[in-house]
Nucleic acid binder design. Structure first.
Lengths: 95, 95
DNA sequence: GCAATATTTAGACACTTGTCTAAATATAGC
DNA sequence: GCTATATTTAGACAAGTGTCTAAATATTGC
C-alpha cells in the first residue's frame, strides 16, 4: 500500500465523496461526474490521484471508463488507521 | 469531529509520525522534536495543524508544553474510515 | 528582575494543489 | 471514414503547504 499516496488522496473532500459513491458499486466517469459541480477535466485529475493511490481500478466499457473501488487497499487503510489509534483495552483489563 | 481538518492533518507524514509517537503517552514539544530533523518552528506549525484537527491536546508543564492524543477524535476517525470501506460480508453470507 | 530554556509567531520562499479552458484521444454507430 | 460521445492531457493560474530564519512570548531558578 502506498501509504503517502492514500492519505494524500483522502485529504480532498471531492475524492472522499467519489469513494463514497463507489461503495454501492462501479460507476462510469460520467455517472460520477453528474454529482459534482466541477468540469470533467478536474474530475479526471481526481481520478488520477485515486488511481495513483491504488484506491480505484478502471475498466473500459464501450465509450465509458468504469471506476470501482479497490477494496483490498481500502482494507489496508483501515488497518493503518486502527494502528494509529492507541490500543483499546477490553473491559476488565486494568493493567 | 472536524472531518476535513482531520484528513488534512493526516496527509503529512511528519504529522502521522508525531501521532505515532504520542501513542505511547504524552510528550513535550521538545521530546517530540528530538526525533525529527526540522526546526522547532516547523514542528510548531505541525502541532498547530494537529490541534486545529483536535487530534492532540496540550497542557503546560513548567517550561514545557506537553502534547497528548485526543483519543476520542482518533476513534471518530476510525469510524469514518471504516464507513468508507464497503461493508464486509460475514463468512457464509452469500446474498 | 535577569539570563537561560522552551515554544510559538511573523514573514518569506519554493513547491504543490485544485481548478479552469482548450485541445487531444478513444470508441461507437451510422 | 465521419460525427458524436466520453474521457484524458496540456498548460495556466490562484491559493495552499512545508520549510526556514529571526523575533516574540512564557516560565524557571538564581
Amino acid at each position: 500500500m502506498k501509504q503517502q499516496e492514500v492519505f494524500r488522496a483522502l485529504a480532498d473532500p471531492t475524492r472522499r465523496a467519489i469513494l463514497k459513491r463507489l461503495q454501492k458499486g462501479a460507476l462510469s466517469a460520467g455517472e460520477i461526474g453528474a454529482a459534482f459541480d466541477i468540469t470533467g477535466a478536474s474530475l479526471s485529475h481526481h481520478f488520477a490521484v485515486l488511481k495513483q493511490a491504488d484506491l480505484v481500478r478502471t475498466e473500459r466499457r464501450g465509450r465509458s471508463i468504469v471506476y470501482s473501488l479497490n477494496t483490498s487497499v481500502m482494507e489496508d487503510l483501515t488497518r493503518v488507521v486502527l494502528d494509529l489509534v492507541p490500543a483499546r483495552r477490553p473491559r476488565g483489563d486494568d493493567r
